[in-house]
Nucleic acid binder design. Sequence first.
DNA 1: GGCGTAAGACTTTTT
DNA 2: GTCTTACGCC
Length: 738
Amino acid sequence: MINPLTAEPVTSKVILNNVQREAVVYPEGPQLVFAGAGTGKTRVLTAKIAYLIQHNGLAPNHIFAATFTNKAAGEMKNRVEDITGIACAGLWIGTFHSLCARILRRESGKIGYMPSFSIFDKDDQLALIKKTAKDLAIDERTMPPRGLLQAISKYKNACIPPGDVEGTGNFFEQEVFRAYKEYQKNLLQQQAMDFDDLIANCVYLFRGHTETLAQYQGLFKYVLVDEYQDTNRSQFYLVKLLAQTHRNIFVVGDDDQSIYGWRGAELDNILSFEKVFPGAAIFKLEQNYRSTQAILSFANAAIAPNCVRADKRLWTARQGGGTVTVTRYRDDRQEAETIGDKIRRLLHEGNRGGDLAVLFRTNAQSRLFEDSLRKRRLPYVLVGGMSFYERKEIKDCCAYLRLLVNPMDDISCGRILNVPARGIGDKTREALMDQARQTNRSLLQVVLDEQMDYGGARAVKGVEEFRTVFLLLSDLVSQHETPQEVLQQMLTITGYMNMLEDEDSEEAQARLENINELMNALATWSIDNPDKGLSEFLEEISLATDVDKWNKSDDTVNLMTLHCAKGLEFKTVFIAGCEDGILPSRQNFDDDDKIAEERRLFYVGSTRAMDVLEVSCAEQRWRFGSVMPMGASRFIEAISPELYRLVDMSAFVEMLDHASHPVKYGPKSVRAAAPVAHDDFSQETVQYRVGQHVLHKLYGQGEILSISGFGVDMRMTVLFNDGSRRRMMAKFADFEHV
DNA sequence: GGCGTAAGACTTTTT
DNA sequence: GTCTTACGCC
């Protein structure tokens, strides 16, 4: 620790250009920083926080800073500690959702919640709305559950409680209202909140409790918001409330990078900031430090047709650079194969995989690139998509843990009542749920106190078994057993482990390893967070973003959606599938605002590239199981041809790959090619090798005995010095330096 | 009640 | 082409 009084000032410790420095040292009052792509937004935000602490002498816990991912929050906090030499444990920094959860855990009693409330993810929400709709006799076909959720989400994002929409609108709106009201009632009864509630309930809390609001207004002397262009109305209300007393609100954003309108984000928040906060100081960061002139010119031309934008001009000192390439392919298959070849060449030329990224509009497009890279034995990581914590076996485990933390959580209870199968089918479950509803108790409560006088003998036995299991686990929790011991016991007592071990399939094997991984993760987490418990672990899991879960590695090529790529940068970027219908998505064709948002998405993708940008489109693409003709994206068509080089590969029918195996494109037979077994080439692709000595946080020293799979799927067997032999997934192993 | 097969829906993007 | 739901059989 350095002494802050003698420390170098922030402004000399962090290199800042003139505008950046002005924004950092600007004394007080509302501030809006327009930060174009690659203009050092994070640097300014970090420096600002450090400056507030060091120069203004603010204690870290007086600062509220909302970032876009928890990972960014963690990195920023560390950086601020580096700069100031002051411990920042008390700093309120994180995503809106985690910050609000933190406030709500403390104040939950004021809005009828216990501090142990559950956080419902998408699946839980869907399960609950289905149950709600069923109870209300709302027909699933006329009112699809997803549609209901979307409508409800809209209300919540605007902080409109069910009481405010009563009696308005047509039949459909009435039905939505009925569902909304009942859904909220159910959430409260189960002591659960969905993602939107975390923000909305915070706003309701403050609206309804002026003394609590005053307390937080007094606490937060400075409110900072990153990615302000992507905030929705409830988030806007929240920061407005919090910043009311001190009027120190500092927001950073770029209207050209607003890509979450479909999630309720309101571009108007950033565009009308000056109106809402009169006297706001405006700063414009226009020097881009990331991309070459060629890339920037291309991106600027791409975004130019959007007319509702704040006036700004991005420029770069990085003159020249290779021309942006636009490549036309015959089909999606050829696109993926050729990009795979290009990536292989780039790696042979000495580029690191981590410097390369393939970006696409939809998750479904990732598969071809995965196949292509896997075939070439190139390590890659798919960011986003089906994440670890969304897997069935992991969700099952978490449901048990969640029920232990919050016994009112009927959705979790319903999920695991019959997992593993113990003879409690849909009928029995429904009977129990009816019983719960009629007697106004939780599902678990019914299961625990009811002498069942209905259902078959098998069902009764199953319910008894579940009761026994739950009480045993509950005892462990009250005896303050460690979280991983509870999980371990759950897996043994329920027979979950046996079930998977008995099933002799590859899938069961993978599930076992995932569960093993969850135990490792939980154990490691407990060591890192000795003062926290199960409920905090569960919260962290449910609020983690895809990028939070991403282990950036030097060696793995990155595959992700354009949305996921926001805020990141790579030396070489491929944007694939730039076709009308994909980017922009067909579903947004008839709405100009949505087309503008799609264009911004294309802009975001283009500005991720530092040195090389390659955009591509295919003339035909497999969609819904059949071939569809595609045309190049209107966004490309709108860019002046001098700004890129057009390469037409669509005439190539066949190419040779490096191993001289002809690769044919198009015919179905090729698509069904046998999957490559990874076992024999794993060592060449990653940083681990057999025989390597490693140091694990939990298990200490060990030696890698064998490796299978590669990239994200790489698993290895490690013999630890305590004699234990463990299978673990490389991406989670988290070995310390040896 | 559980498990297997077959038709059906469906894909935008995510905290 | 892939995942989810519905139905029929055990």
